[in-house]
């Protein structure tokens, strides 16, 4: 019971400043909107802009999730350096709960941003499949919580060398995104690139999101996405919990 209370305490603490100043959430939307405005018209995936949106928006919200959560460890780095985290570590609060609460909080801004993006693309011809799309957002939230927990674990591991945090998080997130076929259909590329993309878990999530946005629900493609999102959450949260348990700062 106290564990869940601690998760709630940590979650609420992170949520309050976000709610008090939602402007940065809007700022996070700038990049995907620029892509929608200046990149989608270049796409040739089926002919019409509406088709291009239906294909591109799911990839874009996966990108939003990945980049939005891969960098959240930075906020923990700040708190590691300033002594805030240490203050909590000197209380009876559960250590994994500190990471769980934070990671779960990251679900909300990204789900809201993804929702905003869907609603923005709607007037331009994006077809809505509310149930599938909400399920898609839930998958993203799960995936995002896992990536956030990994990012926190990285922040703890790189606490004595903060530039390491940037180097690792950037050099992991960007290739994952490019190899996930977020921007262009990877099937059109050379064979080696396609094979490489099959080893990228993000590819399966992107494909599942595209299937959901096309109205699919009970298909193998979606199931793969569910497995990847749930797997990322489980692995990420376990590694995060382990990192903070061992941390003597």
């Amino acid at each position: 019971m106290t564990f869940f209370r601690d998760v709630a305490t940590s979650f609420t603490r992170e949520m309050k400043p976000t709610l008090a100043d939602p402007s940065w959430m809007a700022f996070g939307l700038v990049q995907p909107i620029l892509y929608l405005a200046f990149f989608v018209p270049l796409l040739d995936v089926g002919g019409s802009t509406a088709d291009a949106l239906q294909w591109f928006v799911p990839g874009m919200i996966v990108m939003l999730t990945l980049f939005g959560t891969a960098m959240v460890g930075w906020s923990l780095t700040e708190e590691l350096m300033s002594g805030v985290l240490e203050r909590f570590l000197a209380t009876p609060m559960s250590r994994p709960a500190l990471i769980f609460g934070r990671s779960l909080k990251e679900m909300f801004p990204l789900a809201l941003q993804a929702l905003a993006l869907i609603l923005l693309a709607w007037p331009f011809g994006l077809q809505l499949h509310p149930i599938q799309m909400l399920f898609g957002l839930a998958l993203l939230a799960l995936f995002g919580a896992g990536v956030a927990a990994l990012s926190y674990a990285l922040a703890i591991a790189a606490r004595h060398n903060t530039s390491l945090f940037y180097m690792v998080s950037q050099s992991v997130a960007l290739p994952l995104m490019l190899l996930g076929g977020v921007l262009l259909p990877i099937e059109n590329g050379p064979g080696w690139l396609y094979i490489a993309s099959r080893f990228n878990p993000l590819t399966y999530l992107v494909e599942a999101e595209r299937a959901l946005f096309a109205g699919e629900l009970f298909t193998t493609t979606v199931l793969w996405g569910v497995l990847i999102a749930a797997g990322t959450a489980v692995v990420g949260l376990s590694i995060g919990a382990k990192a903070i348990r061992k941390a003597s700062l």
Binding site: T9, R13, K16, P17, E79, M81, S82, G83, V84, R87
Partner: peptide, 22 residues
């Protein structure tokens, strides 16, 4: 601790309540 544990983005009274919960 040595660092300022007061926190960056959280409001003072909220942070006290969080500490109480912890």
């Amino acid at each position: 601790g040595q660092g300022a544990g007061a926190g960056g983005y959280n409001k003072l009274r909220d942070e006290l309540l969080t500490q109480g919960a912890a």
